[in-house]
Amino acid sequence: MSALIHLARRISLIPVLVACLALFVLMIMTFCDVILRSVFNSPIEAATELTRILMAVLVFSVLPIISVTNGHIAVDLTDGLFQKFRLSRLRDAIIHILAGVMLYWPVERVWVLSNRARDYGDVTEYLGIPTFYVGWFITIAVGISAVALIVTGLLYLFAPQYLSEPSK
């Protein structure tokens, strides 16, 4: 069990690296686009569509990680109350499992929509990159988030010792 969780943590470095690379490329590309356009009058024509793809990559790569590390923006006005009645762990378990389960249907729909785009032959304007690749990527990222949320919720319930961050 702990070996498995250890492995999951190690593997999670890969999407972080991918997201960081996407962000760095986005920054450099914008810089080069402006300079090339202003000084050399030859902008990167595909800059806009690449920006869109890079954003999807950077946002969704790390979604599974922020989903299970308290990274989502939440309101903590009632934290004291839950602590007082020792319900924090139960609450976190329910929240994680509920969030994970409720993602099933959107994931399924994103998958359907992506394959529909594939069927219609949708591509990006300049480079002709098929848009369903981005859709598949988002499906996988949100799908992994859902599974990770459910697993984390179960850990809260049955094996809290494996959670690196105690429930706040």
Binding site: T51, R52, M55, A56, R109, V110, S114, I138
Partner: peptide
Amino acid sequence: LSMVGRQIMDTAQDY
């Protein structure tokens, strides 16, 4: 869900 699916895909790709 179709509306939700499109929001998920389009928001992150909003230039």
